[in-house]
Design a protein around this nucleic acid. Structure first.
Length: 877
RNA sequence: GGGCGCAUAGCUCAGCGGUAGAGCGCUUCCCUUACAAGGAAGAUGUCACAGGUUCGAUCCCUGUUGUGCCCACCA
């Protein structure tokens, strides 16, 4: 892989006639991608001298297929790495997938259910075999989609979180954290999904407002009677206390006493606890330490026992009339039983409150006391926060940093064990006498009678948290790790800051001795439909990116996504917009076709400025400015800005004006034509390079055809050569203004665009003489005799452009046009005069602003004079 | 209950102290020898509302309303 930019190419690869007039993405995209991979363009070399640039892909779950959100993020990551590669970096974009523990297990269980089987029927080993099969089948689909999108990833380094190497990383860090006392086992209240039958972490719980019912139940007898309010009556079987606020006069006399718990033969104490809000409900709270995190905390403070009343499926286990009832059945049954006993003092009251649901299956989460493994996040999170606070890691856009801090600074310990079969098994063994041994990946597990391995697996985010370095070979000190760690940019959705980003930070800093896993965290928004609505299956507005890519090409989808990529903001996308992008690709195609037909050249130095026309100097001046601006935009993740800039530069300036003006030059031939050929080639060459990171396919096809060189993928990134020509820019601005003005006149006159009109252009003294021929061609003017009456004049550069159009003038139309312009000029004069009469303005406004207003005033005055004169000279209708 | 963000053309969004912008849509004309997936010309906005700061506010400040997102163990 060499930079082939400097060598002259053999010339255009194909004759212009070979290029059809429409770009057909389907015919080139697959071919080009295969070529890139074959030539190894995306394979990074750990031994090279080039500075590294690394992005690790947020590994998609093997469960799914890529959606527009992936397409969006992949486009941006691809653009970043492609640009860096062109800039001469050793660019690595490392691909891979996540085993997605609970999600994948659920999918395979569903598949089994359709066969009428359960995972228990298969047993652990056979079940995991089955998941591996599933991975082979569906994982391949995702990789195919990535190729289709044009992702320039290094396939030789593809990784999967359950790979042997990555599993070693998991074992290694577990052991190290364990030995450092940062992983421990403890019995606590956890979020339990009674359907998935596993613990889940806090952030895997979705809270939704549910309509519950608050019932008031009388506890105790006689003088000890007191009323509690609850939405979860079924848990009362496990109550081991009632808590009241210590200052609450209503209950003071009861504190410390034992009261009768209804429906049971137990008595429970009344305890005083600061956390009870006397204002809420009755001010007395039933305490169920085994089934509520708050109550668990109260229980600990008061040394209360915990009584578990449900099994793992949410079925009541307390012997008696409620045994065997599902938790929701139990709730109503228990309320009825209490009512019969006259213990419901206030009837059910509707009560809206947040209830946790399993983010994987939406089942209502059951807080449950259970023994789990935990990561002690305190010191890790502190480091993770500091790395951003002290600037070692930048968050982009910066507003998002607050969200990150809120999380890492208030993080609870992380429950990492899952009662699943698919995932990394916890490397801990239990001995016959209650011994516990944490076994590192290089150690032999204890053998002998009675030793068993912990049956749980790790939270899937545990292995994802190691991704930036486990994929590079850690814990081995590989050349990849040395060369490519830390990675440069982590680009991902802001929705997984907590799940993933914060955890990679914690683990990276811990495992790599304080080196954070990336330098910049670039957070993107979510892709939405064309009305800004979230894409979801229930709305029926989900779009398969493959469908659009098939119809409009991958570039069109990519360009549309890039154009919507305002930092941190959500990205709306609609099919119309993809069409517009497709049209742009086609425009590029045809402009290049024009260049080839006219013999544009890309080799050798640019002609000296003296040999170039003002038009040539103008476009080259603009080109350099655009290169600088686009480059800065890329550097700042301003993809929308860059795309928009290049779109308008290419279309509005190069294609609509430079190309149009150059047609006359090419027709005339000679030295000016040679110069323009080289300039046009240069402009296209660099514009295509600038666009390549975003729209790799069409630019590759056109650039190689135009230059005859190997590939734009390995071409040098364009640089601002510092060529600026303000005079030429001003001159061309005038040309454009004059031409537009005359076109407008023509349109107002109802002249057909193609109609040749006898006319005379008097450009003496305007400085535009050199453009006369081009302007005449653009305006479809043909030579006229002498007997013309001036009917359209424009003040330009201190002189006058006189356009004579006799015999074709619609006097009334022209009068209307002039009157409208006159009114506008008068308004402008009034405004500017008022402004300039304002002393405060003159005293405080910066000089350039005042000058600008003065110029506007002068223009308005001149316009009024001219327009008035023209109106007077109009023949009477 | 906290925190953050947003309200600009019919739609989706840029912009930002000094004459309101883009894409799509819309109107009129045109198959002009790169392109009809195109060309030319054009219409459209009390920049949410109310105050304030300023010579000047769409932009800065305050409040109001509407709207979206994140976080939160009040039964």
């Amino acid at each position: 892989m060499t930079d082939n930019t400097q060598q002259p190419g053999p010339g255009p690869q194909r004759a212009p006639a070979d290029l059809p007039t429409q770009y057909a993405p389907a015919e080139v995209e697959g071919k080009l991608y295969d070529r890139w991979v074959e030539r190894g363009y995306f394979e990074a070399d750990a031994t090279s001298d080039k500075p590294p640039y690394t992005i690790v892909i947020p590994p998609p779950n093997v469960t799914g297929s890529l959606h527009l959100g992936h397409a969006f993020q992949h486009t941006l990551m691809d653009a970043l790495t492609r640009r860096k590669r062109m800039q001469g970096f050793e660019a690595l974009w490392l691909p891979g997938m996540d085993h997605a523990g609970i999600a994948t297990q659920n999918k395979v269980e569903q598949q089994l259910a359709e066969e009428g089987r359960s995972r228990q029927d298969l047993g652990r080993e056979e079940f995991t075999d089955r998941v591996w099969q599933w991975k082979e089948e569906y994982g391949g689909r995702i990789l195919g989609q990535m190729r289709r999108l044009g992702d320039g990833v290094d396939w030789s380094r593809e990784r999967f979180t359950m790979d042997e190497g990555l599993s070693r990383a998991v074992g290694t860090i577990f052991k190290r954290l364990h030995d450092d006392g940062l992983i421990y086992r403890a019995e606590r209240i956890i979020n339990w999904c009674p359907r998935c039958l596993t613990a889940i972490s806090d952030i895997e719980v979705d809270y939704q407002e549910d309509a519950g019912e608050l019932v008031s139940i009388a506890y105790g007898e006689g003088e000890d009677r007191l009323v509690v309010a609850t939405t979860r009556a079924e848990t009362m079987l496990g109550d081991t206390a009632v808590a009241v606020h210590p200052e609450d006069e209503r209950y003071r006399h009861l504190i410390g006493r034992q009261i009768k718990l209804p429906l049971t033969d137990r008595t429970i104490p009344v305890v005083a606890d600061e956390h009870v809000d006397p204002e809420f409900g009755t001010g007395a709270v039933k305490v169920t330490p085994a089934h509520d995190p708050n109550d668990f905390a109260i229980g600990r403070r008061h040394d209360l026992p915990s009584l578990t009343v449900m099994d793992e499926r949410g079925v009541i286990t307390v012997p008696g009339p409620f045994e065997g009832l599902d938790r929701f059945e139990a709730r109503s049954t228990i309320v009825s039983a209490l009512r019969e006993q006259g213990r419901i003092v206030a009837e059910k009251r509707p009560y809206l409150h947040a209830v946790g649901h399993c983010s994987r299956c939406q089942t209502t989460v059951e807080p449950r006391l259970s023994m789990q493994w935990w990561v002690k996040v305190g010191p890790l999170a502190q480091e993770a926060g500091d790395a951003v606070r002290d600037g070692r890691v930048a968050i982009h856009p910066p507003e998002m940093a607050k969200r990150y801090f809120d999380w890492v600074d208030n993080m609870h310990d992380w429950c990492i064990s899952r009662q699943l079969w698919w995932g990394h098994r916890i490397p801990v063994w239990y001995g016959p006498n209650g011994e516990t041994v944490c076994v590192g990946p290089d150690e032999e597990p204890p053998t002998g009678e009675g030793w068993t391995q912990d049956s749980d697996v790790l939270d899937t985010w545990f292995s994802s948290g190691l991704w930036p370095f486990s994929t590079l070979g850690w814990p081995e000190q590989t050349s990849d790790l040395k060369k490519f760690y830390p990675t440069d940019t982590l680009l991902t959705g802001h929705d997984i800051i907590f799940f993933w980003v914060a955890r990679m930070m914690m683990f990276g800093l811990y495992a790599l001795d304080g080196t954070p896993p990336f330098r910049t965290i670039a957070l993107t928004g979510l892709v939405r439909d064309e009305h800004g609505k979230k894409m979801s299956k229930s709305f029926g507005n989900v779009v398969d990116p493959l469908d659009w890519m098939d119809r409009y090409g991958a570039d069109a989808v990519r360009f549309t996504l890039a154009r919507g990529a305002n930092p941190g903001a959500d990205v709306p996308i609609g099919e119309d917009w993809v069409q517009a992008s497709r049209n742009f690709a086609n425009k590029l195609w045809n402009a290049t076709r024009f260049a080839l037909i006219n013999g544009a050249t890309v080799d050798g130095p640019l002609p000296a400025a003296e040999r170039m026309s003002a038009t040539d100097r103008w476009i080259l001046s603009r080109l350099d400015a655009v290169v600088a601006e686009a480059d800065a935009g890329y550097e700042d993740y301003q993809f929308a800005k860059v795309s928009d800039l290049l779109f308008h530069f290419a279309w509005d300036e190069v294609f609509d004006w430079y190309v149009e003006l150059s047609k006359t030059v090419f027709a005339a031939g000679g030295e000016p034509a040679d110069v323009s050929r080289r300039v046009l080639g240069e402009v296209l060459d660099r514009t295509l390079r600038l666009l390549h990171p975003i729209v790799p396919f069409v630019t590759e096809e056109l650039w190689t055809t135009l230059t005859g060189r190997e590939s734009v993928v390995v071409a040098a990134w364009p640089e601002d050569t510092g060529f600026r020509d303000a005079a030429a820019e001003a001159e061309l601005a005038t040309v454009r203004r004059v031409v537009t003005e005359i076109r407008r006149f023509r349109a107002d006159q109802g002249l057909q665009p193609g109609q040749r009109v006898p006319a005379r252009l008097e450009l003496d003294g305007t400085g535009l003489a050199g453009h006369e021929e081009a302007m005449r061609a653009l305006l479809r003017l043909q030579p006229a005799g002498d007997a013309f009456e001036a009917t359209a004049t424009l003040p330009v550069a201190g002189a006058t452009v006189a356009l004579d159009l006799s015999g074709v003038i619609d006097v009334e139309a022209e009068r209307k046009r002039l009157q409208k312009d006159l009114a506008a000029a008068e308004k402008e004069l009034k405004q500017t005069t008022a402004k300039l009469g304002n002393e405060g303005f003159l005293a405080k406004a910066p000089a350039p602003v005042v000058e600008k207003i003065r110029a506007r005033q002068a223009t308005a005055e001149a316009d009024i004079t001219r327009l008035t004169g023209q109106l007077e000279r109009l023949p009477r209708g």
